[in-house]
C-alpha cells in the first residue's frame, strides 16, 4: 500500500510540471495566477500524501489545511488586484453622479 502511495505521489508531482509550463508560457498574467492556484491545490493534496507515507497524518493534515487556506486568500488577493478601488476624494465642483466602477456587479447595496 505504501508503494502505491509513493507512486501516486510521484504521478501527482509530475502533473505539476504542466502548470509550471503554463506559469512560464502563459500569455497573460492571470493565466499564471490560475496555474499557481492549481499548484497550490495540488500541494495541499501532496502534503496529505507525504503525511501518510511518513506515518504522521495527524501532523500533516494541519499543514494541508493551513496551506489550502492561505492559497485561497492568495488567489482572492491576486484576483482583487485587477479591480479598481473606491475613491475617497472627489473634486468639489464636479456634479454629483452615481459612481459606477468598472465591475458590472460591484454596486452599493444596503
Amino acid at each position: 500500500m505504501e508503494t502505491f502511495f509513493i507512486i501516486a505521489g510521484i504521478v501527482l508531482f509530475t502533473t505539476m510540471w504542466a502548470e509550471i509550463y503554463r506559469v512560464m508560457a502563459g500569455p497573460t498574467a492571470i493565466d499564471r495566477i490560475v496555474a499557481v492556484n492549481v499548484i497550490g491545490t495540488k500541494t495541499t493534496v501532496l502534503l496529505v500524501f507525504i503525511g501518510t507515507i511518513f506515518g504522521r497524518v495527524d501532523m500533516f493534515v494541519d499543514f494541508a489545511l493551513a496551506y489550502g487556506l492561505l492559497n485561497f486568500v492568495g488567489s482572492l488577493a491576486a484576483s482583487r488586484y485587477f479591480h479598481r478601488c473606491l475613491p475617497y476624494t472627489t473634486p468639489i465642483d464636479a456634479p454629483e453622479k452615481r459612481k459606477k466602477t468598472s465591475g458590472g456587479n460591484r454596486t452599493e447595496i444596503s
Binding site: I30, F72, S75, A78, S79, R80, H83, N105
Partner: peptide
C-alpha cells in the same frame, strides 16, 4: 469554486 469565480471575474475585467 469561489476562487475560480474570482479569477474568472478578474480575467473578464482585464
Amino acid at each position: 469554486p469561489a476562487s475560480t469565480h474570482a479569477l474568472m471575474d478578474a480575467g473578464y475585467e482585464e
